[in-house]
Write a protein that binds this DNA or RNA. Structure first.
Lengths: 107, 107
DNA sequence: ACACATTATCGTAATATTGCAATATTATAT
DNA sequence: ATATAATATTGCAATATTACGATAATGTGT
């Protein structure tokens, strides 16, 4: 065994876990933060900033992108990523609803 | 190599990743939800409820406990876990602060 | 102290994630 | 069309996570 048994859990719980996974690595946390700080963002800049190889950064960007958190456009020669605020807010809502629900019967 | 390079990131970003990791597995999401629903919680009940082995549930509980989210007491013969609301709220705040910060320059 | 029930830990196997070098792809500008 | 720069993908190695059976440890009640 060893693989996650995602099929035994509810849709909502799997969704929460999926969202949390995006933020479960400091590199991705840092990348998202960096993108949010720059008006137009370029991958090579991130490589310099974060201190991981271009390949690794690109991989992390894919994870973030697959979660639907990024919109990308080419601006001149370079790729400009920006954070999809709608998706980010949705993520925040999902997490907060879970946090609030989980507060019942706490101590 | 393959191991996470946590040393190259900021303290705050590592903290966020650590918190998110707790919720990054559906079993842990489900366990926390279950504990919050029951007034007094017993591990064996969780095993029946979630559908994973006792050893696996115990492992997940350790992860949640190590994050500081659980308080445990013995009630009669059985261990009663409850969610530490203070810690949970702290986690929620950390995540929300990050969400809010990350909304700058989004699109 | 002893039996019983519950929870934790150990050992092991399978899968997933992380990271990088090398290579391929893509887009822009000339 | 070609050269150039930026980004994505591939292949591989190392580490981490997930899961479970077996066993150990812990606490309760008699």
């Amino acid at each position: 065994m060893g693989a996650s048994k995602i099929n035994i859990h509810t849709k909502n719980h799997n969704k929460i876990a999926k969202i949390a996974k995006v933020f479960a690595h400091p590199a991705r946390v840092a990348i998202l933060y960096y993108i949010s700080k720059k008006e137009s963002c370029i991958c090579n800049d991130i490589v310099d900033e974060i201190g991981l190889s271009q390949a690794t950064i690109s991989q992390h960007l894919q994870v973030i992108k697959n979660a639907g958190l990024l919109k990308g456009q080419f601006k001149g020669k370079r790729l400009c990523y920006c954070i999809d605020i709608k998706k980010l807010n949705e993520f925040q809502d999902v997490m907060n609803r879970y946090f609030i629900k989980t507060q019942v019967n706490s101590c």
